[in-house]
Simulated scan of single mutants.
Amino acid sequence: MSNEYWFKTKDGSTLRLAVPVEEVPENLSVDIQSFNILKKGEICFFSGVKASDIKISSFFPARDYSFCQYSGFPSPEESKAFFKRVIDSQEPITFIMTGTDINKEYFIEKFSTVYKQGRGDLFFTIELKEAPKLTIEKSSLARKEKEDVLKRTSKKAESKTTKRPNTKNQRVHTVARNETLTSIAHRYYGKTGDYRKIFKANSLLIKNPNKIKVGWKLIIP
């Protein structure tokens, strides 16, 4: 029994090749990364399986030949328009070769045609690249969502703890030599005990109220 060659679009449209394909080469390959290490030479690492690809060459017949697999097939122009619509849609197409395990979704990577004088047949070459389906396990998705929530919560907490007090309409004092928080408090408030106000307003800068440095700019609330 001869193989049949079918193309099926996402919206359910189909096209079956009328002329049997002489050969359908399928290329399977892997991605190998290589690095040159000093005094060790080249080292290779397996980094994944590449998408498979298929290349088909045949022709869309202008009339019913004895070797055509069925009659009533679309004209060369209709067949060409079918593949052009698929390319324009940017959607994958399912290619099925009956009697084999080839039944996958592919992107049309290249589609070339040429008319040959005399018969009106349209010769074509179509190159397909497998469109692998990406799946995410529910557990992995839930874990990722949880991690995202924790990151957002952490950022909000960090933002609250690192936010400096609003300095608008507040005085700024530059620490001079031999000054202390108590002397600065006495200067602005008339009371040395009010140094706590300054210490609290500058808690991100001052870790020890007994140690301040010349040149620091302190907020005076």
Rank of each mutant, 00 (worst) to 15 (best):
K110F: 02
F83A: 10
L15D: 03
E91I: 01
N3W: 08
S34Y: 08
V19Y: 01
Y195N: 02
K155M: 11
P20G: 05
G72M: 14
A131K: 07
E147Y: 09
E4V: 06
R119M: 08
R63I: 14
F45I: 11
F82Q: 05
E137F: 08
I220Q: 03
K151M: 08
N36D: 13
S140P: 01
S66K: 14
Q170S: 09
Y115K: 11
F124E: 05
V49I: 15
L38H: 12
T135F: 12
S29K: 11
R171Y: 12
D11G: 03
T192M: 07
K10N: 07
Y65Q: 06
G120F: 07
N210V: 11
T153W: 06
A176D: 08
S140M: 10
Y188T: 01
A142P: 00
D194K: 10
T182G: 05
S140C: 06
I56L: 13
V24T: 14
N27F: 05
P74V: 09
S139P: 00
E147A: 13
E23I: 04
S89L: 07
G72C: 11
I220C: 04
G12F: 11
R171Q: 11
E22V: 04
L17K: 00
P165S: 10
S2R: 14
P76H: 04
F73T: 04
L141M: 10
